[in-house]
Design a protein around this nucleic acid. Structure first.
Lengths: 208, 208, 208, 208
DNA sequence: TATGAATGAGGCTTCATTCAT
DNA sequence: TATGAATGAAGCCTCATTCAT
């Protein structure tokens, strides 16, 4: 019955254009979601911020929830990339210090922190979000664990600690500090000091 | 306080009734907010869960946001009370261990964790929430700091650490572990072990 | 938990008022549905025609479909009442003649005809509608059959015909003539003549 | 007609292709309209069922309403052809009996019945549809009337009946029985018996 | 011609809140 | 006080249709 002729009929699909639009929408959504949260954000505001018509959004995402899930996965991939970037640091301690510093630089981080927290909160409400986070958490722990393992080989970290347990603990610490950035009465320096102290302990590094 | 002399005061009973109703509504709200989040929860569902008519809610709270703020403050007061309960423990370490154990007992904690996370997330969006949290955070740090100070006097904790900094760090850790309870692939025991390790380090306690 | 006290708290339910509003909305819906059909009619137009806010409609009907089903059942009850009114006629033939005349009086009937047809059409699409119509059809056939039976006793109708079969046939005829009222090139008199002829035959009445 | 000489005419093939596509779309529309009704059917679903892109539809029909009108006319032409097929029957009675039998064979008829009913219902709403149906009704009555006239010549039908009136009555009967096929509690045999009885009476045929 | 992309308008429904009893 | 009734303002999504390729 179908007379579709893939060869030369009609407008060809431009995969790049499509991907770009998708990103454009996700970026608009990121801003609005960070500002309002998933549920208070309206698709109208999102599409406006993305510079797209309200209806067009639905050609790239089946539903608002679909958009949310896509954004969550993209964000988690970014978090993982952040951890992987530790591979490029001179030493594990140097790398984590850099990460910590970036963590407490308010202006750039604020949006992504709000989003990360919103995602964590959503994990208590939608099992699908929890499952996605679980998968991501496993990858993050594994990745960071491997990096710690390399630091063990190079002698930076003592062999007796459990790499996975240390990794999990560090990641929890990061979220812990991040979660209060909007209101903490503690100065950025003091926060960083506390953070470094914890990491040092978790990895049994030598005190600086 | 208000039950001293029913014959003397015009309407102390009514005042009690009012307070009771308020709590009844807040408790209903707690359940719904934990399940759905602040914005996805409807006042209709809240009043239904509280066993109250939808209109009646507005005789105790001016607005949904007012209800949210009241609940937030009540919850933060509860968090503070939790910290104050450390005064009753034999030693600081014992007390924090108990707190940690309670933290990772999933069923009872789940609702309050979801709520705490929702509140933290909201702090990025409403400056009023952030301000409230800041005030609460200060009280918590001060209170925990004083407790740590007492532990220094008793010799449990070395004198050279900064009580406030240690307190702030510990509280951040607690939120960090709590934030992932819904999805963490780590066992409760391993979480507790990581938690204890961090606290021990923050307080420079002797290894158990 | 529920503190509901049915005795004297709050506004009492006024069942009459509620029923009146319901009818008001159904009547508004009747007009719009007759004019546009079930699917082209908007709830906004319905509530406007009923003199009610758009939201208020949903305190009486869970959904547009619910409203449609309610209206269908009310209409079918009216159709049955029409058949029952045959009991008041002097003779069966007189009664059916009156019904037939009313059937072809365009202005008053037009709206109800449109609606009846819309309902019949919907029976092909929603099994629930079909089931409702089936129940109504059975009652109509039984009722009309009983009336025909009485006419047999009084000697107006010969005993040898099947009352149920005759009833079913007559009802089908009515719908047949009704279905073309909007466009038939036949004069009302000629239609009536044809209708009477068929009924006469179905009941084996004496020719007038 | 358009296939006479491919070498002579510039684009007879294209004309054929156009007509074929048109039919293809109309056939897709028939299915969807029968299933959902005119207004609940979306052009997207229609074009999908026709195996055509949604935009392509608009190169063959100016508007959804245009498609509806075209389909209505095509269907009415088919109805007329059905009546004309009576000319091929041995006797009028035989022909009508065959038509009746086909009428009550549920599976094949169901779709076309739903469509016919939808069209009848639409006649109450759009004067244009009513006008189209009126024209078709006149042709049907004339055609069936002429066939009845031939049966009078052959002696099958008595001369004294009005051919046009009889024709109109018969057509109304057909629609009457058809309109309830989706829900009637009457068996196909009983329906057929009732139908035949009415036709026999309308034409004053001899009882079988 | 035929298809993918885009969009304004509108549809159904929910919600926070006010009013009347 | 407490409840049922009412509503304007949104919110998510779909649709018929046009535009670009």
């Amino acid at each position: 019955m179908s007379t579709m002729n893939p060869s030369r009929l009609g407008r060809p699909v431009d995969a790049d254009r499509r991907a770009a639009r998708r990103r454009q929408i996700i970026n608009g959504a990121r801003g609005v979601f960070a500002r309002k949260g998933f549920h208070a954000a309206s698709t109208a505001e999102i599409s406006a911020e993305a510079g797209v018509s309200g209806a067009n959004l639905y050609q790239y995402f089946a539903t608002k929830d679909d958009l949310i899930m896509s954004l969550i996965e993209e964000n988690l991939a970014g978090d993982l990339a952040l951890i992987e970037s530790l591979n490029d640091a001179k030493s594990l301690k140097q790398g984590i210090m850099s990460l910590g510093k970036a963590l407490f630089e308010t202006p750039p981080g604020r949006q992504s922190h709000a989003l990360r927290l919103e995602i964590l909160a959503e994990s208590f409400r939608q099992e699908e979000v929890a499952a996605t986070l679980r998968r991501a958490e496993i990858r993050m722990i594994d990745t960071l664990g491997a990096i710690i393992g390399k630091a063990q080989v190079s002698g930076e970290v003592p062999d007796e600690i459990s790499t996975l347990q240390a990794a999990a603990t560090i990641i929890a610490c990061v979220d812990g500090f991040m979660s209060r950035i909007a209101f903490t009465p503690i100065s950025a320096e003091a926060q960083l000091a506390g953070f470094v102290m914890l990491i040092t302990a978790a990895l049994r590094l030598q005190q600086s």
